[in-house]
Amino acid sequence: MPAAKLLEKMQTRKSHILIVDDDADIRRLTSQLLGDSGFRVTAVADGAAMQRLLATESFDLAVLDVMLPGEDGFALCRKLRAVSKMPIVMLTARADETDRVVGLELGADDYVVKPFSPRELVARVRAHLRRTNELVAAAPKPRVKSLGFDGWKIDPIRRELRNAEGTLVSLTGTEFDLLTALAERAQRVLSRDQLLDLVRGRTAHAFDRSIDVSISRLRRKIEPFPDEPRFIRTVRNGGYVFTAEVVPLEESA
């Protein structure tokens, strides 16, 4: 365990984070926060400075403010995404759903609304860096394309599930992540631990119920007969498999 912690520390120390924010105080304070958390941080005030910096430095993750003078955060996000696969976390003062969708569609990985909790920002940065490391280990990056099964549609950007009639069926965050994790790996048996990992990695849920509870809730919402599940089958030696045929869907904006 101490070895793993040490390894993680070494990994995080290596991570270089780019911050673009026009507010000098927030730039300084966020740099301090992430610096204290063991990251190497370089902060600039606008897109022009970012471009200059990119020519000489390499980064593991970018934190972009949306409201910037000149080119806004969305434009910077698009530029950054064109040249790099690094995780991008957008910071915004607007809690609009549309802003979040635009950001994620432009290739941002996360969206944090000001005033954010500093600990949450650190947690999210850590989560994204960990996933990047897993990416190196060939773990699939979460899809941004919608998935379809038996007429149902999973939209990962809007985090929406719709049935065959196009009716919005509500899921809790955990249920949605669980369904996505299962559907992305259809026909593969996933153990409870694997599922827990996949769900935890995606978003930080403070009060996760056990996987079994979430599966049973999920079944009640999507299975025609929850007692005889067709989509999510229980595998005898502790695990679940998504048995419906899953097809990637064209993005319909």
Binding site: T98, N163, E165, G166, T167, L168, V169, S170, L171, T172, G173, T174, E175, A206, F207, D208, R209, R217, R220, K221
Partner: peptide, 26 residues
Amino acid sequence: DAPGPPDRVDLASLLQTLADARADMD
């Protein structure tokens, strides 16, 4: 501000989700 078009929403799952999410927070 932006009323947006109405959507087909399943009220039963919405209420269940609302209750579950809060029950999860004890």
